[in-house]
Structure formats: C-alpha cells, structure tokens
Design a protein around this nucleic acid. Sequence first.
DNA 1: CTTCTCCGTTTTTTT
DNA 2: AACGGAGAAG
Length: 793
Amino acid sequence: MDENYLDELNEQQRAAVEYCDGPQLVIAGAGSGKTRVLTYKIVHLLRLGYEPWRILALTFTNKAAKEMRERVEQLVGGAVASKLWMGTFHSIFARILRANAELIGFKSNFTIYDSSDSLSLIKMILADMGLDKLAFLSGPRKGQKKYKPSAILSAISSAKNALISPEEYVRSKDLLEIDARDNRPELYAVYRAYRDRCVVAGAMDFDDLLYYTNVLLRDNPDVLRHYREFFSYVLVDEYQDTNFAQHVIVTQLTRESGRLCVVGDDAQSIYSFRGANIRNILDLRKTYSALSIFKLERNYRSTRNIINAAGSLIDKNSEQIPKTVYSENETGALIEVVKCYSDFEEAYQVASRLSQLKMTSGDSADEFAILYRTNAQSRVLEEALRKRNVPYRIYGGLSFYQRKEVKDAIAYFRLALNPDDDEALRRVINFPARGIGETTLAKLTRAAIDGNVSLWTVIQEPDRYPAGLNAGTLRKLDRFAGLITEFVQADRKGADALELATRIIERTEMLKMYLHDSTPENLSKQENLQELISGVKGFVETRVEEGSDSMSLADFMAEVSLATDQDSDSGDASEERVTLMTVHAAKGLEFNNVFVVGVEEELFPSAMAQDSPAQIEEERRLMYVAMTRAKKFCMLTYAGSRFRNGQTVCCRPSRFLRDIDQRYLRLATNDNLGDDAPKVRPTVNYTASMAGSARSLNSLRKVQPSSGAPQSFRRPGQMQPSAGKPASDVRYALHSVSEVAEGTVIEHAKFGRGAIVNIDTAGPDPRITVKFENTDTRTLMLKFAKFSIVGTE
DNA sequence: CTTCTCCGTTTTTTT
DNA sequence: AACGGAGAAG
C-alpha cells in the first residue's frame, strides 16, 4: 500500500478522510473529489486496522460500486479489496436477506421480481378484483382507467419506501382518504393482494429488498445486534438519493457505534421520483447529535465558466444546503447555446460541432458525451453521428436481460430455482406454445388465489386445488410440470449454471424455434440466446478461474437479477467512442466535452414536472448535474420543433437557459432565449397554425393529476452494440474452425481484442482459447463466439 | 386455443 | 413510432 496516500488529498479532503471518531457527513460539491474521499477513507480505515470484511460501503448504482472497488483495488490490491462488503443497497441487502430468509417467512432461493414482473402481477390482481374496467367518470378523466397499473405500482412502492405494510396502510385514515379522493378506494386491497401473491411466489420486488431488510432488523434483535457488531464501519455514497427505507437501515446499523461516513450533495439529488429524500441528509443531525459536517467545495473538474454558470443556475433553487462550489482552474470557454429549427437540425449541429471540436482539441472520442433528458431522444442523434462516421456508444435503453427471448429463457432459469415464481411461470407456461391458453391460465389463477398458493402448487396438486380443467388440459400441464421438475432436480443434484442453462435451452426447444425461419428478428433472437449462454459460460469459467465453487444457476441469477443496463459494459474498451446517455445515467461521470440537447420547456424540465415547484427544482438539479459533467467544454442546444409521440410539436427554450447568468453564455446574436414570450400563459404561447392540436391537447392534459412514475418500457434496437444494428452484425459474425488458427488476432463483440492461444477440436464443439488485451483469457465455443478476424500476431 | 388485425395509448428519469 | 390490449376469424 502506498504510504503517502494522504498526501494526494487536499486539506478538506484529508480532514474528511482522517476523521474517524464519530458520525460524519461530507457535503461534497460536484467534482470535488467525493469518490476520492470515500476510497481513500476505506484505505485509511484498513490502515487503522479495520478488517476489510467488516467495512460496509454502500452505493446507489452498480456502476459506482464497480468504480469504487476498482479504485480501492489499485490502492490496496485485489486480495483485500475483494473482501470488502461493497455494493448497491439492493445487492448487499439481497445477500443478507438470503442468509436470513426463514426469519421473515421466505426461503433463501427467493426470486427478485423486476419492474415488469411487478407490473404484470398488478395487472393480474386488478383483473382478478375486477378493477381493470373503465371508469365512467365525467370531465377530463372520462374514459380513463381508474386503476392504472403503473400508478398503483408506484403508490405501493411509496408505501414500502415509507415502511408502511398493507395492514398499517388500511389503518391510516389519511391514506384511505387520499385514495378515496383519487377515485381508487380499494388500493389498500390491491397492495395487500400484491404482497400476498409475492409471498406465495417466494418473490421480492426491488422495494421489498429494502422493506424486508427493515422487517428483519426490526423483528429480530439478535440479527440486528449481529450486523451492528459485524459491520465495524459503514460508508454511504450519494446519500441525497437514499429513500426512507434505506435511511432507516443505515441508522439502525450505526446509531450505537456512530461509525458512519455519509457522502452526498443535495444539489445533485435527482431521484426523488423513486422516493429519494434530501430530508434524510438533514435529519442525520437529529439522529446523530455528534454528527460532524465536512464540506468539499473546491471543484477540480471543470473550468471556472462552467462552475460559475452551473452555480448561477442552482442558485435559483430555494431548497439547498448553503455552500459555494468554486473552481481554480482556468476560466475556459463560454458555454455555447445553440438554437435549432428542429430536432433533426439539432442533431446535425451537435454532430458537426463535435467532429470539429474533436479535430481542434485533439480529444479522443470518449472525451465527448451527448446528454439528453429522455432515452427517446437518442434516435436522431445516432443517425447524425452515423452519417459523420463518428463512433458512439449508447447507455441505457433496453438492457440485454430485458429482451423478450432472453427474459423467456431467464424465466425458465427462475423456475428451475423457484418453481413457485408465478410471474416466471405465467410467462413461459405457454412458451413455446403448448396449448395452454388464457382460459386455462385464468382457471389456474383463480384456484391459486382461492387456495392462497402458487400456480405451481395448483399444477402439482390438482386434486387438492381443483381448477376445473379437462383431462386433455391436465395432461398438457403435466408435461409442462415434468419439464420444470426435471430442471429443478438437475439444479438440486448440483448441475452448474452452464449445464443447466444449456439443458433448459435445448429441452424447451427455444433456440430451435427461432432456427425455423430466418427473419432478421429471429436471427437476432438466436444471437441473443447464444449470447446468454456464452454469458453463463463466461460466468462459470470466471468462477472456475477464481477457484470458487459458487457456479450454480442460482449464483448466476444472483449476479444477473440486480444487474441493470448501465452495468453491461459491453463493446470493446479499446475503441474510443462518443457517449450518449440520459443525464441520470451520467451522474458521477465526467467528460472534457459535454453536449446537452433538448434544453426546452416540457422536455427539460419535463412536462410531467410542470405542476409543482419541487419537481421543477429537481429538474433544475438535473440540469446542474448535466452541466457539471463537463470539464472544458459545454454546449446547450434547443430546437423550435421536435418529433414527439409520433407527431411534430413546437418547443420553446427551457427556463433553465434564462436561469443561467448570461455572462457565462455565448448566444447567437438573434437569440433571446424565448424571453419575448408572454410569461403569463406560457403553454398557449403559439399561433394556431404553428401549434396545431397537439398543443391544445397538452394544455388540457395539465388539468389531470399526474399519474405517478411510470415504469419504463424501452424500445428494442438500442444499446448492445453487438446486436440489432446492421453495422455491428457485419462486424461480429460466427466463424468456423478453418478460419482461425493459433495466433489469429480477433476482435470479440464483448471482450474486445485478443489473440487465439489454443484451438480445441476434441469435443463435439470446437473451442478456442483467447488471451484478451484486457488481460482476461477465455475459452469460447466457436459456434457461439461472435468476433471478427483482425489478422495474425 | 391460436393468430391476426385493428385500435388506442403512450412517453421521464432507475435500483 | 411502437407497444399492448381487445376482438374476430380460423
């Protein structure tokens, strides 16, 4: 370990790192070395003699956890770093819950429902309760569904984040009153049914992971005592993004010891839609009377202009902890504001300015980022970049594990581990088609709900839970059950993830199905299934290499079920690319050059945020995050019209542009940022010819109450550079043995560049062993490995 | 029971 | 534009 690690910190950072005498809050402005403080603090704790496996470091995203681990690794080595408890709230507590599952009425093999599972379960419950019918309401809500699944889900989610059980919910006069007013008086019953079905299915959703952790610690004093003592120091990153459930877990674990270090920046709180609450930071002082507060205010990242501009923007927010972020870097260029006619022109402008800047600055492509408010905005930008042959990488969008065919396969995986998993069962009971249709499923569901058991139990014990099915149907169900049982037993007998996964794909004939005809979609589905298998294979191989015995399908699923899109670091690291992502996804990152596009009213700030000042402030913080990603150059663009929801709508410049002190901006001479617009009625600020009906629809929509946080469904065709796009299909293909030799240099779709060191043709399927430039050596099955041949060594 | 087709709704951000 | 849901035909 580097002895002089403390010298690499400035005075404020060093003070924060060295203070280990009690609870500590570090308010860290953007770019002030927040992660640096956390990583060095961990190193410092190790120095002081804290054992690595008793340090708990919680982050918000997988990406942040990974980055922190890597940075600690560099300082103390992988052997020590791998012993730290470091990860997202969700993954760490999932692990703890699995270890203690029986105490809260679960088994350790519980499934984790993702948002689409949750939504599908909500829909099922609403249908069962007869609440999915149209409501005959008058006025603007006429014809709208009373119980909108996504809104229900988000209400349930809020309840759990506030640690309110269904039983407590129904006892709360306030909540019932609100529901009555919102025309959904039976929400409590939906919540209860949802909870019950999850329990029966042995499933937890994302919120449950936090909720049940609280239950576990609340109802089992000995468990609480154990973890309190076990974790001798707790560190939390991005505390401004924690919700109440997370806050309570943290305080439960550290209230007595006071060995807590929390880092956050209230100005970067951008997840309140998910229950994050800045109050958690402020309330720390109440919980810990001895709380010491440290401030990091010097920004090392950006030029003065960028920091000053962002500062002048965030000053317009009323709610914030007073602090002054300053930069002592060079003044730098002004922030460029560009007005465009349309989203197409915007994309063109950005692409051309980017290419030009790339030439003049000499920065490589990965020093450029284009940030947007919504994923949908990426389309046009992609096109413009492609036209200019600028290589880019999109983050977000549909994750690999969310693709239909992959989800289907995963559903079988899940059933093998937990056949009670209703959502997985419903997904694949008739896929591939085996003549078990809606009617049968409805009858099974009815019986399952009446018996308060899982669908699997109903299928297993038809006599005990009669569903009123005819003999033919029963026979079909029996065959399906046989298939699942076979997988379950294979897992119990200790099959590793690859054996079991391969068997599932073969026995269900999923891959075969797609082989039948070779439409482009089918081809891509085949590829994705093969990619999944090679993912499993890679997982098993890694575990073998690491000398770990944890290579069961359950171990694989534990990694996968909480891995989200950002995590898939696919694409080769060797090639430099421009980054395209949402502002949310960009948090914690930095680039020399940042383009923020679509800086318009109703988009940024979002149309959903228009009706409350608090939401506008969150959007403003989001804008602040966007701008402070930039080190040297920042450009903001807006368009006069934009293709949205299938039609072209008019747009006005964002109020945020006017919030920024104009001293730091470079505007086109004729650009007044929409300041001439009458401010009284901003939304109807258009001539009828310009605006058309979309506009009036929009102003109508504002009357309706906002419908909560919708769960995201992303379109295919984004992300995963290796699939979907014709360009990449050509680049990475399958190869035969005759095409490769030892010494052949290949470019793998996932692992990057590497040289073949061995070819094994002994088995039924030829394998190649490749030493990759990222130091990994992997053995790949030739029939699955997607790569291009670069040359020979 | 399956498949096809039309219709209506949708769009914020993510663990 | 793109998806899911509903309804009709096979």
